Simulated scan of single mutants.
Amino acid sequence: MLYLLDKEVQTVKWNGIPLYEAVSARVKETLNGDFTLTLRYPITDSYLYRLLKVDNLIKAPVPELGEQLFRIKKPVEMDDHVEVLCYHITDDVMQHSIKPIGNSQVGCMMALSSMVQAAKTSLSPFSFTSDIVKHRDFNTKETTTLYSVLLDGAHSIVGTWEGEVTRDNFLFSIQEHRGENRGVIIT
């Protein structure tokens, strides 16, 4: 079941308004990339479609991660339904500014801690963790966005440690391998 929440909510414990008329909802997550929810909601006499406004949150079930929060970015009203594009709540923090960072032979968790300390504004309620213990150098030369430092290319934190990001509401987890090795080879 999908639920509509106020834009200020910072927990998935409250259900909010049930979006029981939803025609379709599709979650798409690209490894170390976008995490989106696309929703199609009918225009009916219940008028719930009018509440689907920019910046409100939708709580949706996601396989393996459970209930996740998505922020409405683009609702488009059609003739008989509303198409709603939402981004995972972690996208809220991606444009925060990060001052230059300098690390030599540290683990991924230490680089994440340096990133949090170099943020120009608080990153809370978001938190960052990693299980990667390999030591690497990680340096930036100019102030840039959290997205650039964390995810953008081979010279980001994820690229440097060759990790895989799991976004779980307000938690970023960089893991050496996401999921389990069950001996299956995909060709």
Score class of each variant (00 low, 15 high):
Asn15Cys: 04
Asp168Thr: 08
Ile185His: 08
Pro75Glu: 03
Leu51Cys: 07
His155Phe: 14
Arg71Asp: 15
Asn15Ser: 09
Leu65Thr: 15
Met94Glu: 12
Trp14Ile: 07
Gly153Pro: 02
Ile174Leu: 03
Trp14Cys: 06
Val62Thr: 05
Asp79Ala: 14
Thr144Glu: 14
Val93Trp: 00
Leu57Thr: 05
Ala25Lys: 13
Leu112Ser: 15
Gln68Ser: 14
Asp152Pro: 07
Gly66Glu: 04
Leu171Thr: 09
Lys59Met: 15
Thr44Asn: 04
Leu85Asp: 05
Met94Gly: 06
Glu21Met: 10
Gly183Pro: 00
Ser130Asp: 07
Lys141Trp: 15
Asp6Val: 05
Leu31Gly: 10
Ile186Asn: 03
His88Pro: 00
Val62Ser: 00
Ser173Ile: 06
Asn56Lys: 05
Lys28Gln: 13
Lys73Thr: 11
Lys28Gly: 11
Phe172Val: 08
Gln117Phe: 14
Pro42Ile: 11
Glu77Thr: 07
Lys99Cys: 13
Ile89Ser: 01
Pro75Ser: 14
Ser124Tyr: 08
Val23Ile: 13
Pro18Asn: 04
Val84Leu: 02
Pro63Ile: 12
Glu21Ala: 13
Leu52Ala: 06
Thr166Phe: 11
Asp91Thr: 08
Leu31Phe: 08
Ser97Trp: 02
Val23Glu: 09
Leu5Arg: 01
Thr187Ile: 07
Val158Tyr: 01
Lys134Pro: 01
Gly33Ser: 03
Val9His: 00
Pro125Asp: 02
Val54Cys: 13
Glu176Leu: 07
Asn169Tyr: 04
Thr121Asn: 06
Thr44Leu: 09
Val93Asp: 06
Glu180Trp: 12
Val93Lys: 01
Lys73Phe: 15
Leu151Ala: 08
Gly107Trp: 01
Ile186Tyr: 06
Arg26Val: 09
Asp80Cys: 13
Thr160Phe: 02
Asp131Val: 09
Thr36Ser: 03
Gln95Ser: 12
Ser148Gly: 01
Arg50Glu: 08
Asp79Pro: 00
Val93Ser: 09
Glu29Asn: 02
Val158Ser: 06
Val184His: 11
Val82Asn: 11
Arg40Ile: 12
Thr44Met: 09
Ser148Ile: 07
Thr143His: 01
Phe35Val: 12
Leu123Ala: 03
Gly183His: 00
Arg178Gln: 13
Ile72Pro: 00
Gln105Asn: 15
Trp14Ser: 11
Met94Asn: 09
Phe128Glu: 09
His81Asn: 04
Ala111Leu: 07
Glu83His: 14
Gln175Thr: 06
His81Pro: 10
Pro42Trp: 02
Leu52Asp: 05
Glu83Gly: 10
His96Gly: 06
Glu164Thr: 10
Glu64Gln: 12
Thr129Tyr: 07
Ser24Tyr: 14
Gly66Met: 12
Lys99Trp: 05
Ser156Phe: 11
Asp92Pro: 03
Asn169Ala: 12
Tyr49Met: 06
Gln175Asn: 13
Val9Thr: 04
Lys134Leu: 12
His88Cys: 15
Ile132Gln: 01
Lys141Ser: 07
Ser148Ala: 13
Pro100Ala: 11
Ile98Ser: 10
Met78Gly: 10
Lys141His: 14
Tyr87Arg: 05
Pro42Thr: 12
Met110Asn: 12
Asn169Cys: 07
Val23His: 04
Ser97Met: 02
Tyr49Asn: 08
Pro63Val: 02
Ser113Ile: 14
Met110Gly: 10
Gly102Gln: 09
